[in-house]
Design a protein around this nucleic acid. Structure first.
Length: 596
RNA sequence: GGUUCUGUAGUUCAAUGGAUAGAACGAAGGUUUCCUAAACCUUAAAUCUGGGUUCGAUUCCCAGCGGGACUACCA
């Protein structure tokens, strides 16, 4: 049982005995003692002073005495301005270290036998390659999946690919017109980039044709509607929906190119899905649910023939669910896919990793499913919303060509890692090893830089700063890990068995205890990150740990330490830190090198 | 206009309602023959404004000011 829980319970009974105060079992406020005070854990007694009818300091002293009586791992207490600081016996921390320093599963909870958590992320369009915005989405989705799994929940990761619609047709039209049969093989580029190029090509010609029409005297709107290339795209979409074989074949082929490209990008990012849905299969879903709503009387038929739902009671507007021609809209489809997934996986929670520009959409989705249709899974939907990624130069705009391509970005990070390492002149790896290292460092830097920021906030991505190998960055953490590994190799060379057991009654120095206390917090951090879907919590924790270790390393000798037990203790702490860094970084999808 | 997210050192980010608001980069200065100087230490520097709730507010509530997003029979 954790210290906090034991303490909480002891506090509960102490309050009862001392003042006849009843508190909830988990209501006790137990927190780590601030560094500048003596003690390990602190209880805030202010909440009880009123009921105890005594001064804060008196209450704190009485509780402190009582707790020390009850719990033998407490060695003493002191009171500062109503804060009760409790000291934990060194043997407790020592025992904790002994128990866990070689535990590869540290902070990984066994998977429970329960309904899975379903998480949808990535959800790309197939008309262009992934860009920086998708990168944030993918990293968040993947990391949150890892974290939730580490908390012991089964996880199902799904992707919903938007593979149909006018945007795909634009690429197809442009390819037919200007492609000359070009393929990814013949052009030697990734399929998603090739298709993306034709999407850009479409836009270019579309603009030219519009301009020509405007010069002929058409209004801007008319020109936009009547440009021949746009008419072609519309016609193609119509044919696609009618199942025209030629169009469908071309569509299949171009999508396959894109998927091959996406697969390579996903692979490089280290992510995979348990299931991929395609909108071409799901876009007609949801009509039955709309009918159900009509039957229940919670939706209504508007006079123009469309089906709508009114959410004015909830402070939102009315929303169209079925067009007047009876076809479905985005919302209809999402209603349908939610039900489909619910039936397929019976998840306890459905998480959607989608940008915050769709907050409104998900508010509506949850209300319609949960409140209007009264589906149980409506209330299990959680929109994991994240902010935009901005660049130092401003916002990314595809029309202005300021979009950062995901593949280019990864290449750039790799090269930065390579140049950074080579310029230090410590190059002693063979080519394969070096490439693996640059990939680890470069991509680690990218992932960490993005994940350390609270998802809800817009963030600024500074390419130069992200690959800085100092400060709150992945390379700093990776380097700390590599240095510990180096230390452990050296110890092994000297015939030291780090896993030998130590007596738990060794006295601990401040720096040693400090590190163990940070390590102690790790499993709890994983659990709260799982509850709040927050990789940032893990990222900032690991950085803190790495920094704490560097400080510890600076202040206390390890291999130079003459006392054998002391040296062993410090090596064990080091090993424990390396292991925790490795496990924690894994939750962020980042690998750590053995040496660098 | 309405809905919603957001506002913390020069900059980029932290802080379950708790003690003197933490880091990093940048600036100034310093240390270091246990790991590979990608390390460590010191200094200067911040809660948008005004109310409220509370023993205690960066955190919760209200108002204002600033920024973003949404407010499509597109997805």
């Amino acid at each position: 049982m954790s210290l906090e829980i034991t303490l909480s319970q002891a506090l509960q009974s102490s309050l009862k005995e001392l003042y006849n105060i009843d508190i909830e079992a988990n209501a006790a406020q137990v927190q780590p003692t601030r560094k500048e005070f003596e003690g390990d854990l602190t209880i805030v007694v202010f909440p009880y002073v009123k009921m105890a009818r005594k001064s804060p300091d008196m209450v704190a002293n009485e509780i402190g005495a009582k707790l020390c009586e009850k719990l033998d791992f407490l060695t003493g207490y002191n009171v500062v301005k109503g804060y009760l600081n409790l000291s934990i016996a060194d043997s407790y921390w020592n025992g904790y270290l002994q128990e866990n320093h070689a535990n590869e599963q540290y902070g990984i909870f066994p998977t429970k036998d329960e309904a899975p958590v379903l998480i949808e992320y990535s959800s790309p369009n197939t008309n262009k390659p992934l860009h920086l915005g998708h990168v944030r989405n993918n990293l968040l989705g993947h990391s949150v999946s890892q974290i939730i799994a580490a908390c012991g929940h089964p996880v199902v990761q799904v992707n919903l690919v938007n593979d149909r619609g006018i945007h795909i047709c634009k690429s197809m039209v442009a390819w037919l017109r200007y492609g000359n049969g070009e393929t990814p093989e013949s052009a030697n580029i990734k399929g998603d980039h090739l298709v993306g190029n034709y999407y850009v090509e479409f836009d270019k010609h579309y603009k030219e044709e519009q301009k020509a029409l405007i010069e002929k005297g058409l209004s801007e709107d008319d020109a936009a509607q009547q440009a021949p290339i746009m008419l072609e795209a519309r016609e193609m979409l119509r044919k696609w929906e009618a199942g025209d074989e030629t169009v469908r074949n071309l569509w299949q082929q171009m999508n396959q190119w894109v998927y091959a490209g996406f697969d390579a990008t996903y692979e490089r990012l280290g992510i995979h899905f348990n299931k991929t849905y395609y909108e071409s299969n799901t876009y007609l879903l949801g009509k039955a649910l709309v009918q159900e709503g009509l039957d229940k009387g919670v939706f209504y038929k508007h006079e123009d023939g469309s089906v709508r739902v009114s959410l004015t009671d909830e402070g939102l507007d009315e929303k169209v669910l079925l067009r007047k021609d009876g076809t479905s809209v985005y919302m209809t489809q999402d209603l349908g896919t939610a039900q489909l997934r619910y039936e397929e996986f019976k998840p306890q929670t459905m998480i959607y990793v989608v940008g915050n520009e769709q907050n409104y959409h998900f508010d509506v989705l949850k209300l319609v499913l949960g409140k209007k249709l009264e589906k149980p899974f409506g209330n299990s939907i959680h929109h994991l919303s994240y902010g935009m990624v901005e660049l130092p130069s401003g916002k990314m705009k595809s029309r202005e060509g300021t979009v950062v391509d995901a593949d280019d970005l990864m290449d750039q990070m790799f090269n930065e890692a390579k140049e950074g390492t080579e310029s230090l002149g410590k190059f002693n790896f063979d080519a394969d090893e070096a490439a693996a290292l640059y990939e680890m460092v470069g991509l680690g830097a990218l992932k960490y830089f993005i994940l350390k920021v609270d998802p809800t906030k817009n963030m600024l991505f500074n390419p130069a700063e992200s690959i800085d190998f100092n400060g709150n960055t992945a390379p700093f953490i990776q380097y700390t890990h590599a240095r510990i590994k180096s230390l452990l190799r050296k110890a092994a060379d000297q015939g030291i068995d780090v896993n030998a057991s130590l007596p738990t009654d060794l006295a601990l120095e401040g720096e040693e205890k400090q590190v163990i206390k940070v390590l102690y917090k790790y499993p709890q951090t994983v659990l709260s990150a799982g509850d709040s879907f927050s990789p940032a919590l893990i990222a900032n924790y690991i950085y803190d740990l790495a920094k704490q270790f560097n400080h510890f390393y600076q202040e206390t000798p390890i291999m130079k330490e003459s006392d054998e037990q002391k040296r062993l203790l410090r090596l064990q702490i080091s090993q424990f830190v390396a292991l925790t860094i490795k496990n924690g970084m894994k939750l962020l999808g980042i690998n750590v090198p053995e040496r660098m």
